[in-house]
Computed example of a mutant assay.
Amino acid sequence: MSGAGLTGQEELLEKQSTSAGSTRQLIKRFVHHRLALASLIILIVLLIVCFGAPWIAPYPQGMQDLLLGPTTPSAEHWLGTDELGRDYLSEILYAGQISLAIGLSVALLATVVGTALGAVAGFAGGWVGELIMRITDLFLIVPAIALLAVIIQGLGPSPTTIVFALTALGWTYIARVVRAQVLSLREKDFIEAARGIGASNMRIIVSHLLPNLAGVIAVAMSLAVAAAIIAESTLSFLGFGVRPPQTSWGSMLSQAAGYVGTPQVYLLYFPGLFILITVLCVNFIGDGLRDALDPQGKNL
């Protein structure tokens, strides 16, 4: 009798662990989301051309022609040149290395920290959960830009410092979202079944809760990439971000701000366009991943 009951529990766990569908089904769902698929292709191309800039960019980074000065887009310089006569397309590609690296690094670290703390807070509950959430609330009420500026000024405006500062604030949203989802899942039958066969709390979280949160985490991570790129651009525009000789899309915006109202205003448009395209792409990819990884999603 008990053996039959145990078999039923194991079958329930097995069913839940595979509820997100096979790899083939996930790919099919994602591909069906045409906007997400197109965004993924565009983002991959962006990553290739930016990180492959030493081989792809038409001119070396920082190559100047002071006699040329700022010029409008032409066949020789597709996006024109800046005030130092540097090819603007080449500078944007090299700057993209910093912006994309910061965005992806912050998203990965913030997702790991936020998911871990949110899962523990939701599953453990009690004073542990309350303590974690009160710390989260404390981070949320602090003026973000002001705190980021103080941290970066104190530690220096390097990309590593910016990643650390943005991660320190970026995990809070993810933690709250994950905690809310865990609170709704921890009383489900498959969790009770896992407890019934003696699974440890850590195993329940890692093997049974997190797979059912994959869609939520994927969306949260995509939003974190977009938020980190925008935050870095804002900090650089205000003078607290990446500084020469390194450059990012945000710092290029800051340098081009003085050209508003002049024929060279295009120097402001192009970095902003690359930021806009990247942010839109990661958001659409997040939507596609959410639909593909949703355990309750319908087979196509």
Results as ranks from 00 to 15, higher is better:
Met1Lys: 12
Ser2Phe: 10
Gly8Thr: 10
Glu11Tyr: 09
Ser17Met: 05
Ser17Leu: 12
Leu26Thr: 11
Lys28Pro: 03
Arg34Tyr: 04
Arg34Trp: 11
Leu35Asn: 10
Leu37Met: 06
Leu37Phe: 15
Ala38His: 06
Ile44Trp: 02
Ile48Arg: 01
Ile48Trp: 02
Cys50Leu: 05
Trp55Tyr: 07
Ala57Trp: 06
Tyr59Phe: 13
Thr72Tyr: 11
Pro73Thr: 03
Ser74Lys: 06
Glu76Tyr: 03
His77Ser: 00
Trp78Glu: 02
Asp87Trp: 00
Leu89Ser: 00
Ala107Asn: 06
Ala110Leu: 08
Val113Leu: 14
Thr115Glu: 05
Gly125Val: 11
Leu138Glu: 04
Leu140Glu: 12
Leu147Arg: 02
Gln153Val: 09
Leu155Glu: 00
Phe164Ile: 15
Ser184Ala: 15
Leu185Ser: 09
Phe190Ile: 05
Glu192Asp: 10
Ala193Phe: 06
Ala194Thr: 04
Leu210Ala: 03
Leu213Met: 08
Leu213Phe: 14
Ser222Cys: 02
Leu223Thr: 08
Ala227Thr: 14
Ile230Tyr: 11
Ser233Gly: 12
Phe237Ser: 00
Leu238Cys: 05
Gly250Pro: 03
Ser254Lys: 07
Ala257Gly: 09
Gly258Leu: 12
Thr262Pro: 11
Leu268Ala: 15
Tyr269Asn: 07
Phe270Val: 05
Phe270Asp: 13
Pro271Ser: 03
Leu273Ser: 08
Leu273Ile: 15
Cys281Arg: 01
Val282Arg: 10
Phe284Gln: 10
Gly286Trp: 13
Asp287Lys: 05
Asp291Arg: 01
Lys298Glu: 03
Leu300Thr: 05
